[in-house]
């Protein structure tokens, strides 16, 4: 890849460091995701069966559903949610879920908006580090 870092737009601040899971398709966090275990349930999703816990989750966008924020907050509460979200399309539902989890449980999960070409580069890296200023460093 051309460079191993990029500056994201902070939708929810925080820091994280860990393995990356890059989703090939958008995901519905309500119905398509089990907040009790952090597992992708949607049988039509190419990464069905994978878990998001202790990973930095990169996805282009979600499939919108009113239940999304609560599913995200519940997964974070149980400790099986992602360490951070990297999104191409800023998503109100994810930020709402993460905010409520931060407020109720004092667990800070950063949400960072990145560009489409940056998302594409993520397919070729294993781990990432997110700094409180929104800097994403890939390794």
């Amino acid at each position: 890849m051309s460079k191993n870092w990029f500056q994201g737009e902070i939708l929810h601040a925080g820091d994280a460091n860990g393995p990356l899971l890059v989703l090939d398709e958008p995901l519905s966090f309500w119905g398509g995701f089990d907040p009790l275990t952090g597992t992708i349930l949607d049988q039509h999703h190419p990464q069905a069966g994978e878990t998001v816990g202790d990973k930095i989750l990169a996805l282009r966008e979600t499939r919108g559903s009113a239940g999304t924020p609560a599913a995200i907050a519940e997964a974070i509460r149980r400790g099986c949610g992602p360490l951070a979200f990297l999104l191409v399309k800023p998503d109100v539902n994810i930020v709402t879920g993460v905010s409520v989890a931060a407020h109720l449980y004092d667990k800070k999960v950063p949400v960072i908006a990145i560009l489409g070409n940056e998302f594409h580069q993520l397919q070729f890296v294993q781990t990432a580090k997110i700094s409180p200023d929104g800097l994403v460093t890939c390794r």
Binding site: A66, G67, A70, A73, E74, I76, V100
Partner: peptide, 14 residues
């Protein structure tokens, strides 16, 4: 309001 539809403890805590 849809938040009254339970999907986990976080709903209740909120």
């Amino acid at each position: 309001i849809d938040a009254c539809f339970y999907s986990g403890r976080a709903h209740l805590d909120f």
